[in-house]
Amino acid sequence: MENILTTTNISKSYGPVKALNNLNIEVPKGSIFGILGPNGSGKTTTLSILLDVLKPDTGTYCWFNNPNDIYYRKKIGTLLETPNFYHYLSAKDNLKITEAISGRGNEADIDKAIAMVGLHTRKHDKFSTYSLGMKQRLAIGAALLGNADVLVLDEPTNGLDPVGIVEIRNLIKQLGEQGKTIIMASHLLDEVEKVCTHFCILKHGNLLISGPVKEILRNEDILVIETENMAALQQLLTTLPHFIELKQQKSFCEIYFKSNSISPAEFNAYCFNNGIVLSHLEVKTKSLEEKFFELTEN
């Protein structure tokens, strides 16, 4: 898969503080890529470097697989801070000002961007009449001016109520389905899990993990089972070569295996052939929250 962005050993320090340490990530074209990490992990520094706001101490990055493209910033729309618009102007008039300042797009692009973020029926209404979610959608519309191929969003749902969060989540999904590449920093693990196709986790400037969401969250197979013969099951598990551990819950247990080592059907048949009847069997995927805390707690 073609990469829209590649970073190579990017490092950045603020005095004695190492904000980034040899960051290497690849963002596939058409992906929704989440950058996760606790406060102080290097998320904002990463975005600032990628957008030429900051210079790295060492390392390089390449947009659009072309290190000689000096016009790459024209292809990137950004939302890095709380959107600032004139409250007494309409959405369309505000975007006209944004277009004039940024030099990206034209009037046709303004109408297209407003339509893409679902505000076409309210484009002549004053900004002051918008809900929080609508204001954030307009900010994303401003980032889309000039038909940007890539959107870089810093905490796009920060400060929104639940309705606004759902609005922005759905909008990001729709833009991804339309072929836009979206890079978003966020601390809302649930939102990233619902929206992103790929993600990375940073801690103290170090990259802990990076890759497709589904692959990373399925590095172990977890089976949730119930049986009346738990003692026999525990004994049987010791004979399975790819068994990792068993976690006993109140009325069920979770069994961890190496990824792709055994299917639910094979496990059910193995138990039955050894005299153990399962009353419940389902596959569980580790949540992003579990993976995040597993990697960042130490």
Rank of each mutant, 00 (worst) to 15 (best):
I4P: 13
L5V: 00
L5P: 00
T6K: 00
N9E: 11
V17L: 12
K18I: 12
L23S: 04
L23V: 09
N24T: 10
P28Y: 09
K29H: 01
G30D: 12
G30H: 03
G30V: 08
S31E: 06
I32P: 11
F33N: 12
I35D: 08
I35C: 06
L36Q: 02
L36C: 13
N39A: 05
G42E: 14
K43H: 07
K43L: 07
L47P: 00
L47N: 02
L47M: 15
L51E: 12
D52H: 06
V53H: 11
L54I: 08
K55F: 10
C62N: 05
C62Q: 01
N68R: 00
K75T: 00
T78N: 15
L79R: 05
E81K: 07
E81Q: 13
T82W: 02
Y86N: 09
H87I: 13
D93P: 13
D93H: 14
I97H: 05
A100C: 06
S102V: 07
G103N: 02
G105M: 14
N106L: 08
A108I: 14
I110V: 05
I110L: 11
D111Y: 10
M116N: 13
M116W: 03
V117T: 03
G118R: 06
R122M: 08
K123V: 03
K123H: 02
H124Y: 03
D125C: 12
K126D: 11
S128W: 04
T129K: 14
L132V: 04
L132W: 08
G133N: 09
R137N: 14
L138G: 11
L138S: 11
N147V: 02
D149L: 03
V150K: 06
L153N: 14
P156M: 01
P156R: 02
N158T: 00
L160E: 05
L160W: 05
L160N: 02
D161I: 05
P162W: 14
I165K: 12
I165C: 13
N170A: 14
L171Q: 09
I172K: 00
K173W: 04
K173Q: 10
G176H: 03
Q178K: 12
G179P: 10
K180I: 06
I183Y: 01
M184Q: 08
A185Y: 00
S186C: 06
H187P: 04
E191Y: 09
E193K: 09
E193Y: 11
E193R: 10
K194E: 15
V195T: 15
H198E: 14
G205L: 04
N206G: 12
L207D: 05
I209S: 09
P212T: 10
P212L: 14
I216V: 04
E220K: 08
I225Q: 05
A231W: 01
A232S: 13
L233T: 07
L233D: 13
L233P: 11
Q234E: 15
L237E: 10
T239Y: 09
P241W: 01
P241A: 08
I244C: 11
L246A: 13
C253G: 12
E254M: 13
Y256I: 03
N260S: 14
I262E: 10
I262D: 02
E266N: 11
E266T: 06
F267D: 13
Y270D: 07
N274H: 15
N274E: 07
V277T: 08
V277I: 13
L278N: 06
E282N: 07
K284Y: 04
K286N: 13
K286T: 15
S287P: 01
K291T: 11
F292N: 15
E297I: 03
E297D: 15
N298F: 09
